[in-house]
Simulated scan of single mutants.
Amino acid sequence: MTGIDHPETFHGLPVLTLPDPGDPDGVPLPAADTVAWRLESAWRGDLTFAALWKHFLDSVDTTKVRALLIGPWWQDDYQSFAPVVDLLTADADRFPSLRALFLADVVGEECELSWLEMADITPVVEAFGKLEELTVRGCGDDYGDRTRLDLRPVRHTSLRTLRFESGGLPSDVVRAVGASELPALEHLELWLGTSEYGGNAGVEDLAPLLSGAALPALRHLGLQNSEIQDEIAAAVASAPVVAQLTSLSLAMGTLGDEGVEALLSGQPLTHLASLDLHHHYAGEALVERLRNLLGDRVNCDIDEVEDWDPEVDEFRYVAVSE
């Protein structure tokens, strides 16, 4: 898992990992609303996530908690995220101030993205009706009997930022986002990944998002980390949603000459404040044409050109897969 780190801040707050119960250092905990609380139980002896959760509820004034991150929740073997979902939803009424939630804040040294045992996160979204920011990390990998990430269509009137960080985002999750009622959503970021790790979404699955009708408040759209980045760029080039955006990202994927050509010949992008295409495979001539077209009006990140020779290299790679 490359390009993924633990955030130092979340929802504008510094991240603090909750100490173990009975921490010998005895450092007093900060006020509940001054930090983003991170919970992790892996590699902490006999401490289960359920026990850590109880310690959290007993030690922190959860009525004032504004941001929460769930780190590694297993002990010795990787385990399903479903029990964490159950705990979160059962105690949702104890978090009236919660505005930001990060599910599976896990990095490669702890567990590869495709190895995470995820679950249906719909109950969490439904339980926290005042949530403004949700980040979900995890794949749709079908290896063995690992549990896939899942989401059903929801109605949520407060959510403003939604991020799925994945090396393979299942098509049913993509369709569920498009079928959801999210009238306040301003920032949407989907790391679509590769089919090898469960990322089976096609351009047709993105149609409700690209139409603009599903997300009236949307200002940033990221359709990233995809092995079909050229096809996505071609669809975006004529997508109605682009007119309402202030920023667009097609970064981290396999974008090549075909995709950049589509952007050059498509609808104007000069109204954007920023266009992120970093980690791409396009030729220097096309990149220069795009820079000239956008000029100084658009902050265009088209750096991080991947070393790839079509006559030698068989595959192009996304930035984050396993």
Rank of each mutant, 00 (worst) to 15 (best):
S158N: 13
G167F: 06
L182Y: 10
L159D: 09
E186D: 08
G167H: 07
L169E: 10
R160N: 01
V177M: 08
L162I: 02
H156T: 02
L188G: 03
T157I: 12
T161V: 13
D172S: 13
L182H: 04
R175Q: 14
V177L: 08
A176V: 05
V177N: 05
R163F: 02
R163G: 00
L185T: 01
L190G: 02
G168R: 01
P183K: 09
L159W: 03
L169V: 09
E181S: 15
T161Q: 14
R175C: 12
G168H: 01
T157K: 14
S166A: 11
E181V: 13
V173E: 05
A176P: 08
L190T: 09
P170C: 09
R160T: 11
E165F: 05
E186M: 11
V173P: 01
S158I: 00
G178V: 13
W191D: 14
T157M: 12
L185S: 04
R160H: 04
L190V: 09
S158E: 15
V177C: 05
L192R: 06
G168K: 01
V177I: 15
S180D: 10
R163M: 06
L188Y: 10
T157V: 14
A184F: 10
G167A: 09
D172L: 02
L159R: 07
A179V: 02
E186I: 00
W191I: 00
L188W: 08
E189C: 02
D172F: 10
L162E: 08
S171T: 09
